[in-house]
Computed example of a mutant assay.
Amino acid sequence: MRERRASQGIRRARDFESFVAGAAGRLLHTATLLTAEPRDANPRARRLLTLALAHTYASWDRLHGEDPYDSARRQLAVRFQRAAWHQYGGFGRRRASPDHGLARLTPQERLILVLRLYEGIAEEQAAALLGLPAERVRAICARAMATLLHPPRDPVPARMEVAPS
């Protein structure tokens, strides 16, 4: 009995390591897009990915043929949504530093845009994942695309008067 359990544990760990070797890069990129951090300095994205992978490993035996990538991506989305809610006091506030192009978007807009365009998730699936109507997901995605494609202009600086000499 112990030997059987030990071999199952080894197989489980090997299967998970194989999954992580193949999927971690893309999942980290997804997390980096969600957090709108630079690729080379993305501690929030790395923490988000670590927590999502830890949850996926903990539920590995309960996946029963479900795609582990979908499970990990779902965890990324849920954890990002929850963190954004707590960090910004609401899901609609924008980040203060627009260093990254996606930082101009609200966390919700960024989440929907990344899920729809980068991850290729259908509107209905994104809506079900986020608990929103599909029409709302469509509208938020369209607004996010418009913001990225046509960013608001910076305000015109006040005219400076030059003192006569």
Rank of each mutant, 00 (worst) to 15 (best):
T50P: 01
L149D: 07
H29W: 10
V137L: 08
R44H: 13
F19M: 08
R2T: 13
A77R: 02
H100C: 02
H100M: 03
A126W: 02
Y57I: 00
Q75P: 00
P157H: 05
V20F: 09
R26M: 07
L53D: 04
A77Q: 04
G120C: 01
Q75C: 09
T35P: 00
Q125T: 10
A23P: 00
R44E: 15
Y57K: 09
V137K: 04
L49V: 09
L76F: 05
R47V: 02
P155F: 13
E124S: 14
I140H: 03
L148V: 07
L130E: 06
V114G: 00
R47G: 12
E161D: 06
P157S: 10
Q75E: 15
A128S: 14
L33N: 05
L27A: 05
L53C: 05
C141L: 10
H55D: 13
Q8C: 04
R143N: 08
R74W: 08
L51V: 03
E17D: 12
H55K: 14
A146P: 07
A13K: 09
H55S: 08
A142Y: 05
G131L: 11
A45T: 02
R138I: 00
Y118E: 13
A122W: 06
A103N: 07
L102I: 00
M1C: 08
Q108A: 15
L53M: 03
Q108I: 11
R116M: 12
T50K: 10
I121G: 00
L102K: 04
A21G: 04
A41I: 07
L33K: 07
A24M: 04
V78G: 01
H64E: 14
P133C: 09
L27C: 09
C141Y: 01
A134Q: 09
A144T: 02
I112F: 11
L102T: 00
R26T: 11
I140C: 06
R116A: 13
R82G: 00
R95A: 14
S71Y: 10
P133G: 05
F16M: 06
R5W: 10
L102A: 02
G89M: 10
L117F: 10
G101R: 12
L111A: 07
R79C: 01
Q81T: 04
L102F: 12
L28A: 08
D70E: 14
E109A: 15
R104T: 11
